[in-house]
């Protein structure tokens, strides 16, 4: 089910995301004070190449990571195997990436 290639992808994306998650949480903790507004968030992110790269990378990593994680859960808890499992993994990964990329574009495009 989980071979070396998938395992490595999941671990590499995990290590990659650790600092991203920490930063993300830090930003949330910082930004949450006094309530959130779209203007506040977008003022920070729109037109920022840095944030675009940050969240772009984050979305790519999380899509891979979550797809592999969901694959394990679906295999172990629902018994899905073979081609069905492969299709699910790709669909989950690509779907998440598409939605995530759109969101990143939405909040960072100038």
């Amino acid at each position: 089910m989980l071979d070396l290639r998938l395992y490595m992808l999941q671990r590499i994306t995990a290590i990659l995301m650790a600092p991203l998650v920490l930063t993300h949480i830090a930003v949330m903790v910082y930004a949450i004070q006094g309530g959130l507004s779209a203007a506040e968030i977008l003022g920070r992110t729109q037109g920022s190449l840095g944030w675009a790269a940050f969240y772009g990378l984050f979305v790519a990593a999380v899509s891979v990571h979550a797809a592999i994680g969901l694959r394990a859960i679906l295999h172990e808890m629902a018994g899905l195997r073979g081609t069905g499992l492969a299709i699910f993994t790709w669909a989950a990964g690509l779907g998440l990436f598409a939605m995530g990329a759109r969101a990143v574009y939405a909040v960072t495009a100038a």
Binding site: G35, L36, S37, A38, A39, I41, L42, V59, V62, A66, G69, L70, G95, L96, M99, G100, R102, A103, Y105, A106, V107, A109
Partner: peptide
């Protein structure tokens, strides 16, 4: 993993419907 699509969906309103995003916030 289940929350992520929702999260992405809401953020994408920044492009299409900023008022709706503010509503969520």
């Amino acid at each position: 993993a289940l929350f992520l699509p929702l999260h992405f969906w809401v953020l994408s309103f920044a492009l299409t419907d900023p008022a709706r995003l503010d509503g969520f916030l």
